[in-house]
Lab assay of single mutants.
Amino acid sequence: NQESVVAAQLIPINTALTLVMMTTRVVSPTGIPAEDIPRLISMQVNQVVPMGTTLMPDMVKGYA
């Protein structure tokens, strides 16, 4: 089963992602794949992401 990127903390809107903000977990439905974490660093979220929420492609500016 593929791991997806999950918020390790509350991420406010327009925050640039850092490694410490993200963790990985096997979730359903699947979100952004864990191997894309290096690509996500410094990208901004376009909404508030509560802790434990799976990051979906449409939540990250410039990802999709």
Rank of each mutant, 00 (worst) to 15 (best):
Q9I: 04
T24F: 14
D58M: 14
I32N: 01
I37W: 04
N14E: 06
L40R: 00
T30N: 15
L40G: 00
P29A: 08
M21L: 13
I32G: 00
R39F: 05
I41V: 11
V6L: 08
R25F: 15
L19E: 06
A34S: 14
Q2E: 15
V45Y: 00
A64H: 13
N1M: 15
Y63G: 03
L10N: 12
R25H: 05
P50M: 14
T24Q: 11
E35D: 13
G62N: 15
V27F: 02
A64S: 12
Q2V: 14
V5W: 02
N14K: 08
M43S: 07
V49P: 00
T15W: 04
N46W: 05
V60R: 01
P29Y: 10
P38N: 11
M59S: 03
I37T: 05
M56I: 13
I32A: 02
I32Y: 02
P33Y: 10
Q9N: 06
I37L: 08
M22Y: 01
I41G: 02
T54M: 04
G52D: 13
S28C: 14
D36L: 13
P57C: 15
T30E: 14
K61V: 09
S28K: 05
T23R: 14
P50R: 07
Y63Q: 03
P38Y: 06
Q2S: 11
Q47I: 08
D58R: 13
L19A: 12
N14L: 06
V27Y: 03
V45I: 04
L40Y: 02
G31E: 02
G52N: 07
V20G: 05
T15A: 08
L17H: 00
T54F: 02
S42P: 02
I37P: 00
M21F: 15
M51C: 06
A8E: 07
P38T: 08
M43N: 08
V45S: 09
D58I: 10
E3K: 04
M22R: 00
V5K: 00
K61P: 03
Q44H: 08
T24Y: 12
Q2W: 15
S28N: 08
P38V: 10
T30R: 03
I11Y: 01
V49R: 02
V45C: 04
Q47W: 05
V20A: 07
M22A: 01
T30G: 08
G62V: 06
V45P: 02
V49G: 00
M51Y: 09
L19Q: 13
E35W: 05
I13P: 07
M59I: 13
S4M: 03
V5N: 01
M56A: 12
T18A: 07
Q44M: 07
K61L: 09
V48Q: 14
A34H: 09
V48A: 12
T30Q: 13
